[in-house]
Amino acid sequence: MIYITILTILLTFVSFIFDREKTWRGIKKGVKQFLNILPTLLSVIILISIVLYFVSDEVLMEYFGRDAGIFAYFSAGIVGAVAILPGFIAYPLAGILVKSGVSLSVIAVFITTLKMVGVLTIPIEKRYFGLKVALMRNALSFIGALIVGIIMALFLSYL
């Protein structure tokens, strides 16, 4: 993230040198868009914070573990689809899950749906694409993630 910030500052600076008026217009446009999405973003992170409070790590293990069999792929997919975790939390968590016996292919489903499917951010996505397209994109991505996980399981067991 830090290099994007540096890049932005640099670009804004360069842009300012070339055309002051244009730069202001661009920044104003950006800020306006940000303010427009802010209420929805805030309400979404509030709801996520509350949901995450009720889901503990032990519960995750029970549904992800080897004992869960093929069911683990679906639960990993569903949890990944609903959860919103930043990478710096998701990867350490995934590492812990692998160490406690969750298979890598189940983790692949979890990581992929976590990133590609955002059930809780559908309200945001809907504002841009409309509900139908947002639902379709999430559904297809979910199926895609399962396919990736299952092919991965085949690879890993023959490797």
Binding site: M1, I4, T5, L7, T8, L11, T12, S15, K22, T23, R25, G26, I27, K28, K29, G30, V31, Q33, F34, L41, I45, I46, I48, S49, I50, L52, Y53, I84, P86, I89
Partner: peptide, 27 residues
């Protein structure tokens, strides 16, 4: 543990993103 962490992530990532977008739009 939850809300504050998300808010931080959001406030770091998004304004920068939107300024880039605005500049992209005009240039």
């Amino acid at each position: 543990n939850n809300f504050w962490e998300f808010l931080k992530e959001m406030l770091i990532a998004l304004p920068v993103m939107f300024i880039l977008i605005g500049l992209f739009d005009v240039w």
